[in-house]
Write a protein that binds this DNA or RNA. Structure first.
Lengths: 139, 139
DNA sequence: AAATATGTATTAATGTATTAATACAATTAT
DNA sequence: ATAATTGTATTAATACATTAATACATATTT
C-alpha cells in the first residue's frame, strides 16, 4: 500500500500539511509515484496519518494548484500526467531562484566553488541513479 | 552608506526580519559586505527601514547565532571574520539538503538532468563572476 | 564622571497560520 | 434510485509568529 510510506511528525515544528506535501513531491520526483497513480482518499489517508481529513485535503489541493496532482470529486486524487502549468521559461526562473538561495547559503558557510561543484555533481548523480531504478520498478 | 541597499516591503507576506536577514546574507555572500564591515546600529537601521528597532535586533541576533555577524553591546554589529560555527561535514550536509530540495522541485517541474546541469553551471558562474568583481571593490 | 551610543531583555498587542468540526457536492457502485 | 465513496467549502478554535513598547546593560566618548 502506497500511503504507508508517508508518516508525519506532529512535534517537528513543520506543519502537517507541509510535511505531507513534501513527501508526496519527493515520491513523485523520485519516481516512487508515477503519473496516473492514485493516492489514498482524504479520509483514509487522514486515518492512516492520524490527522484531520482537512489537513490531507489541504495538501492535496495545494499540490493540485501546483500542477502535481489532479483531484476529481467522487473519483479520487491522482498523480498528474499532463504538462506542467508553467511555461519553460518560468520554470527555469523558478529553479534558478532556488539555486541562488543554495549558493548564498553555501558561500556564507565558506564553501568554495570547487567544493560546491563537487557536492552538486554527487547529488545530481544520486537522483539520476534513483530515477533509473524507479523506472525499472525498483520500489 | 551601506544600509541604503536594504529595503523592506511590509506587504510582501515575508516577515520583515526575514527580509532583512536574507538581504544581509546575500550581501555577504556576494562580497558586498566584507568581514569586519560594520552594520548600522539597530536604531539607525530601523529608522532607515521604517521598522521597529526590535525587528532589526532580531535579524541581527539570528544572524549572529548563525555565525554571520558578531554583535557587541556598546560597540556595534560587524560582519564576522572567524571560522564558521559548523564543522566541515555538517556544513556539507546542510548544503546537500538544500540541493536535494532544488532537485525535487526541478524534477517535478519536468526539467531534465541536462537542463538542470546547464542552469546550475550558469548560476555558479554568475556568482563566481560577482565575487571576483567584489574583491576588486566593484560596488 | 557623566553623557551618549549601542546591543539586549521583557512583556504585551496583534495578526496569521494551522488544524479541526461539520456540512455540502459530485461521482460511482449496488 | 439509493447508498456509498470521494473531493470541496465554510466556519471556528487554537496556537504561534510577528511586531511593537519599554526598560536595561555595556561600552565609548567627552
Amino acid at each position: 500500500m502506497i500511503s504507508s510510506w508517508f508518516h508525519l511528525n506532529p512535534r517537528s515544528g513543520v506543519p502537517l500539511y507541509l510535511q505531507l506535501k513534501e513527501q508526496v513531491k519527493t515520491a513523485v520526483a523520485g519516481g516512487v509515484l508515477k503519473p496516473g497513480d492514485r493516492l489514498l482518499p482524504v479520509r483514509e489517508m487522514a486515518d492512516n496519518l492520524s490527522v484531520n481529513p482537512n489537513t490531507v485535503a489541504r495538501a492535496y489541493s495545494e499540490l493540485e494548484r501546483e500542477g502535481l496532482l489532479s483531484s476529481e470529486q467522487g473519483r479520487g486524487t491522482f498523480i498528474r500526467a499532463a504538462e506542467p502549468l508553467l511555461g519553460e521559461e518560468e520554470r527555469k526562473i523558478q529553479v534558478q531562484g532556488l539555486m541562488d538561495k543554495v549558493l548564498v547559503e553555501a558561500f556564507n558557510l565558506r564553501l568554495t566553488p570547487e567544493e560546491l561543484q563537487l557536492l552538486w555533481k554527487q547529488r545530481l548523480q544520486a537522483w539520476e541513479t534513483r530515477l533509473r531504478g524507479a523506472k525499472r520498478g525498483g520500489w
